[in-house]
Design a protein around this nucleic acid. Structure first.
Lengths: 161, 161
DNA sequence: ATTGTTTCCATTGACGCCCATAAAATTCCA
DNA sequence: TGGAATTTTATGGGCGTCAATGGAAACAAT
């Protein structure tokens, strides 16, 4: 499966339009999906986005929960209820609805960040803060990771210093 | 698996292009990947790079973590969000995006250093500094190795020089 | 009519693609 | 084995295409 990688900062114009990075678009297209599935992230002030495989994943997650349980009701409401399927116009842009923009604090520019199977939309300021925090924590987590990755060749611990 | 060895210093031109050493290219090609997966190293001011096997390795590492955990989210952000898939043009060059160049302090030339399953990109100055530091540490490590390898043939501590 | 939304067009700048040159390595042959 | 011929590499530059972005025009809704 093709993965979303790298990050791109694009402008949001007065109409709320923003260009989806071309490389992300081609992954979505290969996924057989002519749009962007998008919802407010549950645990950060960002938007999660992806194609049909992301929808399937969330669907599968909900399937795993007890039918008619409160947890399942709440979660499906939180995920599918708040989500949107954004149309990609012929210039490769989507319109971000106000609700989504507010959740992520996105004003006049947005950062598209690939995280493998999906991507996220951040406000530049919040992304920068999150990025720095993540790097710091990851360095702390390295020991943990070495154990988790034992038997592998060590992509992270590597030959560094 | 074929391994990246040796080091090469190549020029970075005005467009940010740099030739990937031919021997590295052929390894990548054998890996079935006509690009370079590249991200800022977590623990030094260098870039880590490799082919699809490196991507798979990182992906597998993330898969091994708790789904929906903060650790996993942060790690995928720090790894996939900051990495790039650099295309190799028909002359065997890649363009280094500003973000990556800044992290490694690479200006008008870059050192490609093979470290087995992956390779690294250094600024010449920083590489030299690290190399000197590494030599010092190696001398210290040799004592450790002598003890650990007592009774073996001593490929490292050996009777050399 | 006014507001909001979608389609279409135009500009600009980056990137991919191609060619040219020069140095280095390799092959080939005497 | 020496040296010439050929192939591979590294590097610089030019040019066309495409992506990102701003704005206008067509369309829909209230």
């Amino acid at each position: 499966m093709e993965r979303f990688v790298s990050s791109y900062t694009n402008k949001v114009d007065a109409k709320g339009r923003v260009s989806v990075p071309a490389s992300f678009r081609s992954i979505l297209a290969r996924d057989g999906f002519d749009g962007v599935f998008c919802y407010p992230s549950l645990d950060s002030q960002t938007l999660d986005a992806g194609g049909s495989s992301l929808i399937d994943e969330i669907h599968a997650l909900l399937e795993g929960l007890d039918p008619y349980s409160d947890e399942r009701d709440e979660l499906s409401l939180a995920l599918f209820g708040e989500s949107e399927i954004l149309k990609i116009d012929q210039d490769g842009r989507v319109v971000l609805p106000p609700r989504l923009r507010e959740h992520a604090g996105i004003a006049d520019s947005a950062v598209f960040v690939g995280v493998g199977h999906k991507f996220q939309l951040w406000s530049p300021e919040r992304f920068e803060a999150r990025r720095m925090g993540a790097r710091k924590r990851v360095v702390e987590l390295k020991k943990l990771l070495r154990n988790a990755a034992r038997g592998q060749t060590g992509a992270i611990g590597g030959a560094g210093t």
